[in-house]
Design a protein around this nucleic acid. Structure first.
Lengths: 183, 183
DNA sequence: ACCTGAACACCGTTCAAGT
DNA sequence: ACCTGAACACCGTTCAAGT
């Protein structure tokens, strides 16, 4: 009779989706990883739906952590590049968790909306520090977030083809222009 | 004993995911829609996996069609705006099909890779017509595609919150700068 | 050629029973 | 409080049988 600890449950599920693929996530599979009966999970989360929520929440936190860490000791353009690289690295290192972020809809996961906002807020701070107005910073942050997310998401679905790092660096360089004042 | 036509199967499945949500897609559900036994589908596609492939392929074609149509009669910046608006409209009008595009991984669906390439190619033509070199056109097209896809994907997962059209128009406007020659 | 219906394996979920 | 194991509904898939 193995005992379940919620933090172990979460890290186990997050590691599992990265290794076995997000589609392999199931109550039975995680119960098997923890050496408990499938029904034992229902004490700690609301079934499969709850399991998916936990993975998505963990993925969000991990992504934000990485971005924040990458931004330390940088500013301006180089901060955007550093954060962009961290975003991509997370998706490459943790494909299952990133897939969880792509699938989750905030309609089902109310707490997830705040995490995407957190990402934008981190970007916003960088632009504010560059001297942009609050409104300009928010718009620039959203655009930057969109471009970074789009590239990484497209690379994610394109599977493990060739390395697109140079195209990504080009994108991050052109992103500097969105911070410039409007014509 | 209802008869199955493959084109009806595809349009039925595509409509179904838009109405009932992508996660509701199942062999049983589509069989029910077509008034046949679940096992009857296996004559026309490879089970659930095949069903998902068909929906993803249909979604790709529909998206590319819309983008191409939007580009007719426009050029340059206004073409990018028109194609960007068409991209977003597809995701808003067909959330289930767009979800299929977000989930499909080309590792499993070899034919899907070519469709994403098709989108980039359409963008590339626009930039070439603007006078950019082939290499510059490709890079600009990829960046533009990333930004558009990212915004629409983030809006998609954020659920049916407020309307973000004005932020999107801002993004499309700033995208014009990626077509400018490098500093 | 293509659909039906039985059959099987497997999963999600509930719940009484144990500790 | 929390895990087990039985039980149930449901789904994906296969296949022999029909037409």
């Amino acid at each position: 009779m193995a005992k379940i600890r919620i933090d172990v449950l979460i890290t186990t599920a997050a590691s599992f989706v990265d290794d076995a693929g997000y589609d392999a996530l199931s109550v039975s599979a995680i119960a098997g990883e923890l050496d408990v009966a499938p029904s034992a999970l229902y004490t700690h989360c609301e079934g499969l739906k709850g399991l998916r929520s936990l993975v998505a929440a963990a993925a969000s936190e991990n992504l934000v952590d990485r971005i924040r860490t990458a931004a330390i000791g940088t500013a301006g353009d180089s901060a955007v590049v550093a954060m962009g690289l961290a975003y991509r690295r997370f998706a490459l290192d943790h494909p299952g968790q990133f897939a969880a972020l792509l699938r989750a809809r905030s309609s089902d996961e109310p707490d997830l909306r705040s995490t995407n906002q957190t990402v934008v807020e981190v970007f916003t701070l960088v632009f504010t520090a560059m001297g942009l107005s609050p409104r300009q910073s928010t718009l620039a942050a959203r655009s930057t977030h969109s471009a970074i997310h789009g590239f990484v998401a497209l690379e994610h679905v394109s599977g493990t083809g060739g390395d697109h790092e140079s195209e990504y660096l080009y994108l991050l360089r052109t992103l500097q222009r969105v911070a410039e004042p409007e014509n």
